[in-house]
Write a protein that binds this DNA or RNA. Structure first.
Lengths: 203, 203
DNA sequence: CAAATTTTTCAACTCTTGGTGAATTAATAA
DNA sequence: TTATTAATTCACCAAGAGTTGAAAAATTTG
């Protein structure tokens, strides 16, 4: 009965306004990259999920690579703000504050955003450079410096290792009960570890 | 001058014996999967590296998937043996023993094997199930049970989080100085964390 | 030796990939 | 209104993917 041209949403030409294709693509890309990784995710699958033609990826982002950078590689935090927030306050509760802040941020996306970042790092070398820059130099290194302890860089990497690992187990592999334990429980368990890495005796 | 049939090493038919194609493929697969990830690694590239025809992958492993399982997903340790080794000895140095053992094992492949596993987990859901089974239930859970502490499963996941994180930073993102610090230094820094997760107060 | 089997290469097939350019339609400017 | 610009879809391409089946050569078996 219906010709292919009659079907709603398949007409050619510019859309009747209000349709934010760019954002739709970014959200779809996040989801698909999370589920499939960089290589596994296809431009076609992303476009389909966004309800848009695959050619739009090229039009708006210059290609798959560009879309990747504009979706997954965008952190949900402002590094400088993060560093400042956790720096101010009692130095003895620094570890607890960081763990709480870390989990609050990543929990808000159900862990998907964290998964995506790990996938990026695993399948895409360029992401590693970005992470090092942001996490280490802009955040942990800055915090470690404020404590005045020696071996600031080593301490920063130790902190990163525990936080990244906690994220892996909670968001990626989802080992129970760590994956669903409430934040307070996690703070009590992991906070002291971070605290020691920053201000304690590490050998 | 030379016809294609004259060139050495390109004749058809069975090879002059002694050529262990299967193993050559497994080793090549490990290398390429490590460097490229599952999707990024091509059967052709693996075969070329092994000096063998791509069709051999199908012949010996039934396809790319099979080769993946027989190469990367093989852990370089025997879980039961590992659990026993670290269980025996002074319970107060349990943490140190685990860190030392963990690093010794994965350092031996230059970290590549660990990277590959992470890549698998990130791009291949089936690997997660395998990891949970092996790491948690067969190793850490068993050890945690021996200590007689409460919350054995929570403790096991905490241990896993710190070890996985250490592996991520040392082998995957390679943040310095943690990436190249010698094992003794790492044991001194991280050992106490593991020890506390197993036998200490975690909230 | 002859027959059967195993191992290997080769060529080709099909499917999917990311990307391109023209055509089409809506929105906007003159 | 008319002309211009922006947004979207479509059909198609070249490259590369994993896989397949037949042919060829070495080995093993009878």
């Amino acid at each position: 009965m219906t010709t292919s041209a009659e079907q709603e949403g398949k007409r050619r030409g510019r859309r009747p306004a209000g349709a934010d294709t760019k954002n739709a693509l970014i959200e779809a890309a996040r989801a698909v990259f999370i589920e499939q990784g960089y290589e596994g995710a296809t431009v076609r699958a992303i476009a389909k999920r966004a309800g848009v033609d695959p050619a739009m990826v090229n039009h708006w982002f210059g290609g798959k690579e560009g879309l990747f950078g504009q979706s997954v590689l965008q952190l949900p935090i402002d590094p400088t703000m993060f560093a400042n927030e956790i720096s101010e306050g009692d130095i003895d509760t620094l570890g607890e504050r960081i763990v709480r802040r870390f989990l609050t941020i990543w929990d808000s996306s159900g862990g998907g955003q964290f998964s995506a970042l790990v996938r990026s790092v695993a399948s895409h070398d360029m992401a590693v450079q970005g992470l090092r820059e942001i996490f280490l130099k802009q955040i942990f290194m800055r915090v470690a410096a404020k404590t005045g302890a020696d071996n600031a860089m080593f301490r920063a990497t130790l902190v990163a290792s525990q936080l990244v690992g906690m994220g892996m187990v909670r968001y990626v592999t989802k080992f129970e009960p760590l994956a669903t334990n409430d934040i307070d429980t996690m703070v009590a368990a992991v906070g002291p570890t971070i605290q020691r890495y920053f201000t304690g005796d590490i050998g």
